[in-house]
Amino acid sequence: MTSVTSKELELLGALLAFDFIGFAQKSAALDPADPHYGQAVGAAFGIAVRRRFPRGATPREVSGYVADVLGSLDAGAEDFDPAFLERLVSDGLSGDTEPDGERLDPETTIQARLVLTLRLVRELSLGPDQQRELLAEAAHRVAV
Rank of each mutant, 00 (worst) to 15 (best):
P54V: 10
S27A: 15
D34H: 15
A48M: 07
A143V: 01
R132I: 04
A40M: 13
V142T: 12
L11A: 02
Y65P: 00
R50A: 04
E10V: 14
L73D: 03
T117Q: 03
R87F: 04
R87M: 10
E86F: 01
D19G: 03
D79N: 12
E10S: 14
F23A: 14
L93A: 08
E107A: 10
L9W: 08
L30Q: 14
V144W: 09
D74P: 10
R103L: 14
A40G: 09
L116P: 00
E78R: 10
R50S: 07
A14H: 14
F45L: 04
Y37M: 06
Q25N: 12
V69S: 01
A67N: 10
L134A: 01
G127W: 07
L118Y: 12
A48C: 11
V144P: 00
L9K: 06
G38Y: 08
R52M: 10
G95F: 05
L73A: 08
L118F: 13
E8F: 10
G101Q: 05
A17M: 05
A43E: 15
A136Y: 01
G71D: 06
L11F: 14
V89W: 03
L70N: 08
L114R: 07
S72F: 01
T5M: 14
R103Y: 06
L70I: 07
P82Q: 09
L118R: 10
V4T: 15
A112H: 02
D68A: 15
L30P: 06
E78C: 00
A77I: 04
A14P: 01
S72L: 08
Q131P: 01
R141K: 12
G76Y: 01
D31V: 04
G95V: 05
I110L: 15
L116A: 03
D19L: 06
G71L: 11
M1G: 15
R119K: 10
L124S: 01
Q131H: 00
R122Q: 13
L120P: 00
A57D: 02
T2V: 02
G13K: 07
F84L: 08
R122P: 00
G95W: 05
A77P: 00
A29Q: 13
V4P: 02
P128N: 07
R103I: 14
E102L: 12
D31P: 06
M1V: 13
R60I: 09
E123L: 14
R60G: 10
T5S: 12
V69L: 15
A24P: 03
G22Q: 03
D100T: 05
D81F: 02
G127C: 04
V89E: 02
